[in-house]
């Protein structure tokens, strides 16, 4: 990756750029949260910006962009189960037995 001096400088400049982007996105998130839009809108915006920041960190800083196929398969498997663990309990709450006074 960092073969010689000048490409090294280029790499470091890229990292610093990413750093600035991350800082500004965080500030943007803070600003959005202060706007007090309706709650679901803020959630969507803030979470998507945070997800973008996270993908920046993952792809660039952790070099996931140029990683081996094997690591991708591990991570895809993990994300599938992560989604299950996150949303099935919720589905359980929103789909109670009909006719029962189920207090969440």
């Amino acid at each position: 990756m960092i073969a010689d001096q000048n490409s090294a400088q280029k790499e470091i400049r890229k990292y610093l750029l990413i750093f600035v982007v991350l800082l500004s996105l965080t500030l943007m998130n803070v600003f959005v949260s202060r706007l007090h839009l309706n709650i679901s809108l803020t959630i969507i915006i803030v979470l998507s910006v945070a997800a973008f920041e996270a993908s920046l960190v993952a792809c660039q800083l952790m070099h996931l962009i140029s990683e081996e196929k094997l690591i991708y398969s591990f991570l895809v498997l993990t994300v599938i189960f992560f989604v299950f663990a996150l949303f099935i309990p919720l589905w359980g709450i929103f789909n109670p037995i009909t006719g029962s006074t189920h207090v969440p």
Partner: peptide
């Protein structure tokens, strides 16, 4: 191995889960 991650709630059929889940 893959399927074993998405079957766990059959231990919880009696916790008031609806018909869909």
């Amino acid at each position: 191995g893959f399927m074993s991650f998405i079957v766990w709630a059959h231990h919880m059929f009696l916790t008031g889960m609806g018909t869909a889940i």
